[in-house]
Simulated scan of single mutants.
Amino acid sequence: MADSKSSDANSKGIVSPAASESERAAEAALRPRQLSEFVGQETVRSQLSLVLEAAVARGKTPDHVLLSGPPGLGKTTLSMIIAAEVNGSLRLTSGPAIQNPGDLAAVLSSLQENDVLFIDEIHRLARTAEEMLYLAMEDFRVDVMVGKGPGATSIPLPLPPFTVVGATTRAGLLPAPLRDRFGFTGHLEYYEEEELALIVTRNAVKLQANLEADAAHEIASRSRGTPRIANRLLRRVQDWAQVRGNGVLDLAAARAALDVFEVDRRGLDRLDRAVLEAVCVRFRGGPVGLTTLAVSVGEEPETVETVAEPYLVREGFLVRTPRGRAATRLAFDHLGLPGPAPEETLFG
């Protein structure tokens, strides 16, 4: 996210391979390695610690774990910690990457004892592969079909004990039979500003950045309750301080950098403000349909619905009605706009 163009591309899910690899490497370097280092999510962390300690004490693999919640809250990080706690290797895959039983069989057959299989977006797993996963999770075996037609034979292939960690942003889409096979389910919540400030402060040390306390809180307050965003903004503030500042990440540097990257005081970015401006100005506060709103800002409906809308609704800028999306009084105030005419209906 080096300029506004790359910011636009990222919001549409278009990231260059080099940038994507760089972002992943930077994020990996900042991830905590142990459960004791993990900040926030106190309930999930204490419950998961109990599950892992009991499994290690019994000399067995932990129960399968399902982690749900919005993107960027630490589901992948927790899977890495689980693998480290049980002295196993982490195997990463995703639901969309497994489109048939053969894909899943190839992944399962490569597992070793105590390995952790992390399946991101598990709710998007192909239904034909789910049946194989049920058997693998319960009985640690897969049935491989050899041949075709009436002469086909099913050969059972035993698997070493392993743990599945499933991650989903939409737990309601998980089939009940799959959800019931997880021994532990944890839901991750958005972080408080103090927790994000602590995360940013710790990671600044790892980045060898001279971060001041008020700058850490400024970054945290604009991070939408999400550590992934906080870490990304920290790196952008570090870039600004190195290139245009004196190397110190103070409050002035943080504000200047975040202004350059179009992240305002409430954490709204270019797309968020474009959506709000469209609803408030072009459609006089709404309601307006999702498709019409997406066309007006030059984005796909799915991008508006999954990238911008959740935060805008959570923060009280938008409401969803049977007739479409409508702006609240807070949205007009944030944009510095007068409310609609008295005869108009205004939510909030």
Rank of each mutant, 00 (worst) to 15 (best):
D115K: 05
A230N: 15
N10T: 05
L268D: 03
L111M: 00
R255F: 01
T291H: 08
A171M: 15
R314L: 09
E138V: 04
L104C: 12
T43N: 02
E193D: 15
A252I: 03
G316D: 08
I119Y: 05
G289W: 08
L90Q: 01
P287D: 00
D139R: 00
D115T: 07
T163F: 04
L346S: 06
L111N: 00
D8P: 06
A171R: 14
P156L: 02
T292Q: 15
V307W: 01
A129D: 09
A106C: 02
V144C: 01
A55I: 15
A106L: 10
A220L: 14
L178Y: 14
R33N: 13
D180F: 12
P96A: 09
T321W: 02
G285V: 05
H334K: 01
A28N: 14
T61I: 14
S4G: 10
H64T: 00
G149T: 04
P150Y: 10
S4M: 14
D139V: 01
S7C: 10
D120S: 11
A55C: 14
V295T: 11
E121T: 11
R232Y: 11
E131W: 06
I199E: 01
T328I: 10
R31E: 10
P340R: 06
A327W: 01
E42Q: 12
S223K: 06
R58V: 15
A97S: 14
K148P: 08
P62K: 00
F38G: 04
F140V: 03
G267M: 09
F38D: 04
V164I: 07
P322R: 13
P17C: 02
P150T: 13
D8Q: 12
H334M: 04
P62S: 00
Y134D: 02
R91F: 13
L293S: 01
T291S: 10
I155K: 03
G69K: 02
A176M: 13
H334T: 03
L233W: 09
K60H: 13
I219V: 13
K60M: 13
L207R: 07
T61K: 12
E195C: 15
G88L: 08
I155M: 10
L276W: 01
R224T: 15
R181K: 09
G186A: 15
T163D: 04
P160F: 11
S94P: 04
D115I: 09
S221D: 12
T201C: 10
T226R: 08
R325P: 07
L293F: 00
P177V: 03
R232G: 12
A294C: 13
V165M: 01
A167S: 10
L66C: 05
P342M: 08
R255N: 02
V39P: 11
I155P: 00
F118D: 00
